[in-house]
Amino acid sequence: MSMAAMLSARRLIAYYGQAQILSDVSLDVASGEVALLLGRNGAGKSTTLKTLIGLVPMAGGEVVFRGERIDGLRPYQIAQRGLGYVPEDRRIFTDLTVSENLEVGRQPARKGLPAWTVKQLYKLFPNLAEMSARPASQMSGGEQQMLTIARTLMGNPACVLLDEPSEGLAPVIVDAMVAAIKEMKSQGLAVLLSEQNLHFAEDVADRAYIIEKGSIRFCGGVSELRDNDSVRSACLAL
C-alpha cells in the first residue's frame, strides 16, 4: 500500500515547547482512500495533522507528498501543493460571510484532480447555499463544520486532513459529514481522518491507525480492528 501512497509520513517527532507530543508516527494515505487516525484525547491526533500541514514544526522524520518532500516547508507552501487541512476548532473567519469564507480558500485547479466550484459545494452542503450571504458568526456549530470543510475543498486539494469533524455535532449533521467524506473519496481524494468516534468513522474508513502517547500502536484494516478487542480496549476505551 505504501507504493501507491499519496501522503507518506515516516517517524514524525514533534514538541510543544519542552513537551514531546509525537515520538514515532508513520502513516500512509493513498488516493481514493480514507485512513483513520484513532486515539484518546491527548494521544497526538491533532498534533500529527498540524505537523503534516506545517503548523507545528517537525523535530524529526520526513513527509513525502505526491512524490515530493514537504517537511520543513511553510504551511502555505504545503497547502499550495495540494494538502488541505480542516482544523478541529474550525477556525471560521467569523467577520466574513459564508461565500467570502469560501473565496479565501480558493486556489487554482490542479491537473488530474477534481476542481470544486462554489456551486458543487453548495450542492454537497445544501445548508450553506441558503445562507451564503450570512456572516459566519451567525452559524451553528454544525453549519460551521460544513463551511470549514467546504472552504478547504475550494483549494482543490489532492489530500484532506480532517480533524475530528464529528465532534459535538448532532446526528443529522454527522450524516452530512459521512456523505461529504464519501464524495471526496469517490472523487479520488486521499483523506486522513482523525476521530475518537469509532462508530462514525467505521462507516467511511478503509484502514485505521491507532495512536497512543505519540506513537502509532496499530495499523490495519477497519474490519481487523473491529474484531481485535484487545487493541480496542487497550488504546481506545476510556
Partner: peptide
C-alpha cells in the same frame, strides 16, 4: 495562521 494553512502566502 489559518489563512496560511489555506495556501495564501502571507
Amino acid at each position: 495562521e489559518m489563512v496560511g494553512a489555506l495556501g495564501v502566502n502571507q
